[in-house]
Simulated assay, not measured.
Amino acid sequence: MATTVDNVPVTVTPATTKTEDVELKKGIAEFYDESSEMWENIWGEHMHHGYYNTNAVVELSDHRSAQIRMIEQALLFASVSDDQVKKPRSIVDVGCGIGGSSRYLAKKYGAECHGITLSPVQAERAQALAAAQGLADKVSFQVADALDQPFPDGKFDLVWSMESGEHMPDKLKFVSELVRVAAPGATIIIVTWCHRDLSPGEKSLRPDEEKILKKICSSFYLPAWCSTSDYVKLLESLSLQDIKAADWSANVAPFWPAVIKTALSWKGITSLLRSGWKSIRGAMVMPLMIEGFKKDIIKFSIITCKKPE
């Protein structure tokens, strides 16, 4: 759907009704309530893609280290400082999963970190892991809506969203909330799934492309997708600075084949069957993620910026 934000043309998610929003959030929460334990048992505490060097031979044992590499590469891309004076001291993890990024960032920077998720199961598990890792005084987790965050304006030095933007039904409101809770001079990092940028003259994706994305959306509880350039335009419309974006699709290419391989292992199959129908539905569309990447419909994108001082 094409619209304008301060006279900037942007393709945004079509408006959803309040009932649709409630049903979407309920589905997201239940999906992660069901699937998070299974994911942790097989893949560990980081519920996101790994970052791989292109054309490198990937060993199965490398996948968890690739997830850490994703965090480090995102920080490097956004030029987040390790300097004792300039490093972030307060961080929000928007769509925190079971808190892997929150705990990693808290340890790396000695920072206070707050994670939010729609899943009560995730929030409880994230807090338990924080306590087990001696971080209960540094990190906290709660059930909250990313589109209506329970934080005051300008609270955080680093605003972190690792693969949660794709769940947001209102991308403008999502980005606006990230900006609102960011302190002056703060860095905002969004790593998310996007569809390809439209070519000049295109008003939408082709029907065959939309068909693939619709199947993925129905199983992963996603609203309609937007492009990387749509995110950039939204940030520009909000007067953010140092806006940068990159396509990391090639760097995450080994991820979904690896997830499918582990899902087909005995441990994966038994965990999947125990987790419930929503998780099984999600597993069934994983090959479509690979197809989407191969056909350049899906893009794995990073978009970063800074809030003006």
Rank of each mutant, 00 (worst) to 15 (best):
S79T: 07
F220M: 09
G292F: 04
S161E: 05
G100V: 06
S229V: 14
C217I: 00
G110I: 08
A56Y: 02
S140Y: 06
V5W: 02
D197F: 10
L222R: 10
D145T: 08
P200Q: 12
H63V: 13
K25D: 09
A182C: 08
E59P: 00
A130N: 04
L147S: 14
P200E: 06
K295H: 13
A183M: 07
V5R: 03
L147R: 13
K294S: 11
V232E: 12
S102A: 15
S140K: 12
D208K: 12
W193N: 12
W193S: 12
T54N: 04
A106E: 09
E59Y: 13
L105R: 01
A144G: 15
V8Q: 09
D93H: 04
S237C: 03
A245T: 03
M162N: 13
A128F: 08
D208S: 13
K214H: 10
S79I: 00
A144N: 15
K108S: 06
G134T: 07
V191D: 00
V285G: 07
P14W: 06
D82M: 05
K295W: 00
N41T: 02
W277G: 06
F174S: 05
A224H: 10
S61C: 11
W39V: 02
S36D: 02
V121F: 14
C217R: 09
E112A: 11
D157P: 07
P254I: 13
L264E: 12
D153S: 14
L135Y: 01
S301W: 00
A250V: 07
R69M: 06
A131S: 15
Q122W: 05
D62C: 05
S36G: 11
I71W: 03
K173D: 07
P184Y: 13
E236H: 07
I42E: 08
N55G: 04
N41P: 05
C194K: 02
A131N: 15
A78G: 09
P184N: 08
I190R: 04
T16Y: 06
A258R: 00
T11F: 11
N7S: 14
Q133V: 07
D148M: 12
I28D: 03
Q73A: 04
V22I: 13
I243C: 05
S65V: 12
L288Y: 04
A126H: 09
G44S: 03
I303A: 08
L158C: 12
T192C: 08
K306T: 10
A136D: 15
L205A: 06
W277Y: 14
G27T: 00
K267V: 10
T4C: 02
